[in-house]
Write a protein that binds this DNA or RNA. Structure first.
Lengths: 332, 332
DNA sequence: ACACTATCAGCATACGTATGCACACAATGC
DNA sequence: GCATTGTGTGCATACGTATGCTGATAGTGT
């Protein structure tokens, strides 16, 4: 049914070994026989089996992308990763994580040469498991615990510190924050950087002005409800990512609260939507696309053992748009 | 280095064949030996090789998802497809299409059991190639040419007809449209349905009131520029998907044009964003998530040869929000 | 006690490709 | 003309799992 290299060999009147070598461009086969083999392969429509090849070479040229697909931030990283992998001769398998569900087996069954972990939690056991079984992997955007592995992240501490300094410089004193899950490195670092900035200015971030949930739109809406009802509601809110910020903006819009006059908002990531006229969100640019390509490249270097485990930190940059702004007189 | 079934066999003092049977739950192996094998496997941390298994059984239990990743609409379909596949014991490979780039080989190298085609163009040759080589596949959302293959789509003609009827019922007579690429079945069908509605009302859709480009945000912005500058600019615009509509809304917002008073807008798909307070987009619901799961299920039925090639059409539904509305007196 | 059946495990091999090794042949040097 | 070197191809086998067939053992009935 399916055409194998044996079929090609028979038609070209050579051995299967020669077919393999000819099609792979081995210099030890003559140009004339190579042509004959190529022709036979074309005639039969031969496509080399990745299964046979993988079994023989012990390499699949496929890497796994592991993410919680519920978090749509990571969707946009698939294209750059896919392209980088393709350029280097690799393909992509997609593995969705759902909380604690075990995906160990699907990574360790030799169906992939390595993995990019995008949504790892700090207490995750998966990275240790992979390290123990020596499956190459890199962390992208988030880091999971103190495992020896390359990582590609943004300067989350510096970025959120800059966000905090911006709000303080504008004169805000009652400042709140809506953050993501505590067991993620991004939340930990972004919160730390933001607190640093406040502390330097002699301010504190009381727990009543912190709302913590997921990195999503809904969290922004819920955070609004939780933080803005108080009499001494914040005059400025730092959102740990842009989805949260946009959820907050949407809720404000719905209630007729004006941004930035009634409350200033600053996000993190600078996703495409942040620049839309409907939002004009002031935010911290997280160079995710470049990071994604880098992570893919680093992983392949690691697989082909030309790379070492290092922490790759990309600089962030404050992007000033509309939603920051000095607090109005009435709320200052 | 890696643990194989032979290693397990040696430790459990049985043959490799028995290990295979024991772990697969073959009733021909005794409960006691099965236990012994299980224990040995656990001790060694054995994980069955998908490569060996695939080569032997001629099935990979992996399906390919083929899409133009530039189109972010399809990103949200990955999670439901992934989950449906997982429930039925399949995994997912992601293959990005870039225009005409040939992905034939990566589908035909026996690394996948089937494919879901999401962004096929009407003139694409890939479906014919797959059919010729008898690789099972299904179309999702879009259809590509008259190939014998199952498809899962929305009732695009009916949905856009309803959109047209809504605008006409509101009294609009100068109506425009911003549509996607002509070589997609969705554009063809949505345009046809919309034209049907106008024709029934004795109206026409002149080419000067149609702007055609991609299914994205930028197209909405460009469409605004192209259609709204005229003296007799449309009082209502049908956008062939929500990204286009939201791009249009953003541009209107930027220019201070009021929706729906100055111009009514209606989209297609009902993506999450459409419901956001910033947009409140009136649109046609395209039950994409349910369709995605269905497509995955249909494909697996086909692979396991319990299914037939049929066209599965999901009903659409008009979702009335804010952006439709009667034309104001001044523009009517 | 014998023949017969049922049950369980092992042997051998297939799946498709890659590759170390051996071998055949031609070309070269003396 | 013989030994030597180099070049191109084939043979055999490995990779890890699944499975048809054979064989061994225990259990049953007469």
């Amino acid at each position: 049914m399916t055409v194998t290299s044996h079929d090609v060999a028979r038609l070209a009147r050579v051995s299967q070994a020669t077919v393999s070598r000819a099609l792979r461009g081995d210099p030890r086969v003559t140009e004339t026989t190579r042509m004959r083999v190529r022709e036979a392969a074309a005639t039969l429509g031969y496509v080399r089996s990745e299964l046979g090849r993988g079994l023989s070479t012990r390499a699949t040229h496929r890497i796994a992308l592991v993410a919680e697909l519920e978090n749509t931030l990571y969707h946009q990283l698939m294209a750059p990763i896919h392209d980088e992998l393709l350029e280097r001769g690799y393909r992509m398998a997609l593995l969705a994580e759902h909380g604690d569900e075990a995906i160990h087996e699907r990574l360790l069954d030799r169906s992939v040469d390595g993995a990019i972990l995008m949504t790892t939690r700090l207490d995750a056991t998966l990275p240790y498991e992979l390290a123990r079984r020596s499956l190459p992997f890199v962390f992208l955007n988030r880091i999971g615990g103190p495992v020896e592995a390359p990582s590609v992240t943004a300067d989350n501490v510096g970025g959120s510190r800059a966000a905090g300094e911006l709000l303080i410089g504008l004169g805000h004193t009652r400042i709140g924050a809506i953050v993501g899950p505590a067991d993620t490195s991004t939340s930990r670092d972004r919160e730390a950087g933001f607190r640093d900035a406040l502390e330097d200015a002699g301010l504190v971030l009381p727990s009543k002005r912190v709302f913590r949930r997921e990195y999503d739109h809904e969290t922004g809406r819920l955070g609004f409800a939780a933080l803005m009802a108080a009499d001494d509601a914040p005059s400025a809110i730092f959102c740990a990512n842009d989805f949260i910020a946009i959820g907050f903006l949407n809720r404000a819009l719905e209630l007729g609260i004006t941004v930035p006059d009634d409350v200033a908002v600053i996000g993190f990531d600078d996703i495409d939507m942040a620049a839309w006229p409907a939002f004009e969100l002031t935010t911290v640019r997280n160079p995710l696309l470049a990071m994604a390509r880098r992570a893919a490249g680093t992983l392949i270097d690691l697989i082909e053992s030309t790379g070492a485990a290092e922490r790759d930190v990309f600089p962030t940059q404050l992007v000033l748009r509309r939603t920051h702004g000095a607090p109005s007189e009435s709320t200052a």
